[in-house]
Amino acid sequence: MPVPFEALIPLGLITGFFGASGILFNKLKTSINEGQPPRYGLDRWDRVMLDRDYRLTGTQRGQSHQTSAPDGFSTNSAWTLESEHI
Rank of each mutant, 00 (worst) to 15 (best):
M1Q: 05
P4G: 03
F5G: 08
F5E: 04
L8Q: 10
L8K: 08
L8W: 01
I9C: 06
P10K: 14
L11D: 08
L13P: 01
I14C: 09
T15W: 06
F17V: 15
F17P: 01
A20N: 09
S21T: 12
S21Y: 12
S21Q: 13
L24E: 10
N26L: 10
K27D: 04
K27H: 10
T30N: 14
T30V: 15
I32M: 12
I32L: 15
G35L: 13
Q36W: 00
Q36S: 13
P37H: 09
P38H: 11
R39D: 03
R39L: 14
Y40T: 14
Y40L: 12
G41M: 02
L42Y: 04
D43K: 05
R44P: 01
R44F: 09
W45F: 05
D46A: 15
M49E: 14
M49V: 06
R52K: 14
R52S: 08
D53A: 05
D53F: 04
D53G: 03
D53Y: 05
Y54M: 08
Y54H: 04
R55E: 03
T57A: 07
T57F: 00
G58F: 00
G58E: 00
G58A: 07
T59G: 05
R61N: 15
G62M: 01
G62D: 02
Q63A: 09
Q63T: 02
S68C: 04
S68R: 01
S68V: 00
S68E: 02
D71C: 03
G72K: 05
F73E: 10
F73R: 05
S74N: 08
T75M: 11
N76A: 04
N76R: 12
S77V: 03
W79I: 08
W79F: 01
T80F: 04
T80W: 03
L81N: 07
S83I: 12
S83H: 13
S83Y: 07
E84Y: 08
E84R: 08
E84W: 04
E84H: 07
H85F: 06
H85V: 12
I86G: 11
